[in-house]
């Protein structure tokens, strides 16, 4: 069984069947086997949050999950949110508020916030900061990210109410 095994994973609405080693990290599977390099890899031990994705709707660290554990699961990566011609509303808010500089943390930030806003749109600034506490950004000082999330939450809340 140390050889490769077949897994079937739905990523951004497309089914992929691939052979993987059991030790293949989900982050490496997405980047190297599927070529979806929007998911970034920082620390590879669950501290920086750059590799955050959605697994069956919940945000998780893709470096702390084996690809084989995600067999038959649905995954959303940053490529599933929007694209350069058509940013999704959250991405648009990040752009408007200058919530990124180098962009390395941004895909993880976006996926974390997507999970947060899917569960609660009436977030206080403290709750936004607590929610983002697992995602490290070394450029922005976080303030513009908090601004973008607050604005995006207001927009989502307005639409759904």
């Amino acid at each position: 069984m140390t050889g490769k095994v077949s897994i079937n994973i739905c990523v951004n609405g497309t089914n992929f069947e691939r052979m993987v080693e059991p030790r293949r990290l989900l982050s490496d599977f997405l980047r190297e086997d599927l070529g979806l390099t929007g998911t970034h890899v920082g620390c590879e031990h669950g501290v920086c949050g750059a590799c955050t994705i959605l697994l069956d709707g919940d945000s998780i660290r893709s470096c702390l999950c084996l690809a084989i554990q995600a067999d038959n699961c649905k995954i959303t990566t940053v490529e599933g949110l929007g694209d350069i011609e058509a940013l999704n509303p959250l991405q648009q808010k990040f752009r408007e508020h200058h919530a990124l500089q180098c962009g390395f943390c941004t895909s993880g930030m976006l996926m974390t916030v997507t999970d947060m806003l899917s569960k609660n749109t009436s977030l206080t600034d403290d709750e936004i900061r607590e929610g983002l506490s697992g995602n490290l950004c070394r450029c922005t000082g976080y303030q513009h990210i908090v601004d973008a999330v607050r604005d995006a939450a207001k927009q989502v809340g307005d639409v759904s109410s």
């Binding site: 955050t52 697994l55 919940d58 998780i60 702390l64 974390t112 947060m116 929610g131 697992g134």
Partner: peptide
């Protein structure tokens, strides 16, 4: 306990 993404798993 840790962060949202860790608590989810």
């Amino acid at each position: 306990i840790a962060h949202l993404a860790i608590r989810n798993r």
